[in-house]
């Protein structure tokens, strides 16, 4: 009887450990993956970020709204380590970005996808070569059939299978954004940073891109920060909206909450962006 009891306890402990391992791998949805506290950044005499505080949980879609020049892009560039903050903390997966060495920063960047406003496609390469670039240079994949499968799969996901051998100059603005999105998603990042993903697009294409962002977020289970002026994009994609003004966050909540905010500045912002 005692031996049966010991066996049951043993299997219980083993099962608990396995569950813990799986949960660590998948990530806890309440886990904070991006932690920003007191972030400051200046360019010369211009104080772009004065005091930014933001926590982003795993799987969350946070939209940052704000007027041009309020430091939205600077914030996400600090997250990815492209800019070094003048003060405050930026932690991603619990690691202080500014304190990382080159190799550690590279490893961190492999977990972060950054979609530029222009798409930033390599214009001397075809769509296929653009998508192969992070696979061969970042993930260091060698197996060509594996590379081809990944390229074809991600292009199918963004609905551009036919454009595989086209040059970026042959693509429309919306298609470039889709290819840019495919190129960032192909390495399976845990965090996606979108810098004005719908700017310069017509309303229909903007909606398509916003819906695609949401679909991809669900499919790839990414945590996202989306910088935009487009209220429809915010409406479609946001779990939470943060409003920036003059280098500081002035409000946060859902789109509906912020639209009905008692703060005149927040309301006026919504009127001006709508």
């Amino acid at each position: 009887m005692l031996s049966w009891f010991r066996l049951a306890v043993y299997f219980f402990i083993v099962n608990m450990k396995e569950t813990e391992k799986v949960s660590q791998k998948k990530g806890n949805s309440s886990e904070t993956v991006i932690h920003i506290k007191g972030l400051k950044k200046s360019f010369g005499a211009n104080d772009v970020l004065k005091n930014i505080n933001l926590d982003v949980k795993r799987g969350e879609n946070v939209v940052i709204l704000g007027k041009s020049g309020t430091g939205k892009s600077v914030t996400i560039q600090c997250i990815v380590g492209a800019l070094v903050p003048d003060g405050g903390e930026v932690e991603v997966f619990g690691e202080e970005v500014a304190a990382l060495k080159e190799k550690q920063l590279k490893e961190l960047r492999m977990k972060i996808g950054f979609l530029f406003q222009s798409g930033a496609l390599y214009d001397s390469m075809t769509v296929r070569e653009n998508l192969e670039f992070p696979l061969t240079r970042v993930l260091k994949l060698k197996d060509q059939s594996d590379i081809n499968n990944r390229v074809e799969e991600v292009l199918e996901n963004v609905g551009l299978s036919d454009a595989i051998d086209k040059m970026p100059s042959d693509l429309s603005g919306g298609m470039r954004k889709r290819v840019g999105l495919a190129r960032t998603l192909i390495v399976n990042p845990e965090i996606m940073l979108y810098d004005e993903p719908t700017t310069g697009l017509d309303p229909i294409t903007s909606r398509e891109i916003s819906e695609l962002i949401l679909q991809m977020q669900k499919k790839y289970k990414t945590t996202s920060i989306i910088i935009t002026h487009d209220m429809e994009c915010a409406d479609i994609t946001a779990d939470r909206v943060v409003i920036m003004n003059d280098g500081e966050y002035i409000a946060e909540g859902s789109v509906a909450e912020l639209k009905n905010s008692k703060d005149g500045l927040v309301r006026s912002f919504f009127k001006s962006t709508l």
Binding site: V80, G81, A82, K106, E107, R109, M110, I112, G113, F114, F116, A120, Y122, F133, P134, R137, V138, T184, V187
Partner: peptide, 9 residues
Amino acid sequence: GAMEVSGAN
């Protein structure tokens, strides 16, 4: 910039 932030060199 896209190459840098993707972790490529």
